[in-house]
């Protein structure tokens, strides 16, 4: 249990640093910066108690916001996917009550895990760009930025999970 908490702690700050110093400097095609830091939300162990998880997700977003000078955009989006994560997982796995402690992303089928990551990523990116532009007239920009950035975020996330997690 202690090990798990330490892992989480390292992942939290590791992902912030990775996001700020590597991924925010990518600027692929001039504007695509994959936001892989949400991997922390995706990988957080599932517990009945959700208060700390929501609070930490909010903090993660705020830290990114402070570095990026973006107000509270990242905090709002990260908190939202943290809240919506449980219902999504239940929907995808089709079980009302699954084994909380032994949940492992590598243990479930690849297409289900892929859908889980993609859905959260799209949602998160859509909120980010929606709040950033905040106008209906720029809907095409919001959608195109969401889609393009999501593709790269999902790609890097999956590679990261395959490289850094143990298969069970």
């Amino acid at each position: 249990m202690n090990n798990l908490a330490l892992n989480n702690f390292i992942r939290f700050f590791g992902l912030i640093l990775l996001q700020v110093f590597v991924l925010n400097q990518v600027n692929l095609f001039g504007f695509v910066n994959p936001m892989v830091y949400i991997l922390w939300v995706v990988l957080y162990p599932i517990k009945k108690e959700q208060g700390t998880f929501l609070l930490l997700s909010f903090l993660l977003g705020i830290f990114i916001d402070i570095f990026m000078n973006s107000g509270g955009i990242n905090a709002a989006a990260t908190l939202f996917i943290a809240f919506i994560r449980m219902p999504i997982l239940k929907m995808i796995l089709g079980k009302s009550d699954f084994d909380f402690v032994s949940f492992n992303l590598r243990a479930i089928a690849f297409n289900k895990a892929f859908f889980y990551i993609s859905f959260l990523t799209f949602l998160h990116h859509f909120i980010i760009f929606g709040l950033e532009y905040f106008s209906f007239s720029e809907f095409t920009s919001i959608i195109s930025k969401t889609l393009l950035t999501s593709i790269f975020t999902i790609l890097i996330s999956i590679i990261g999970i395959l490289l850094f997690s143990k298969k069970k």
Binding site: L55, D65, G71, G72, I73, A75, A76, L79
Partner: peptide
């Protein structure tokens, strides 16, 4: 928390 984030935004 979401309201706080939106206020910041």
């Amino acid at each position: 928390l979401e309201i706080i984030a939106l206020i910041f935004t």
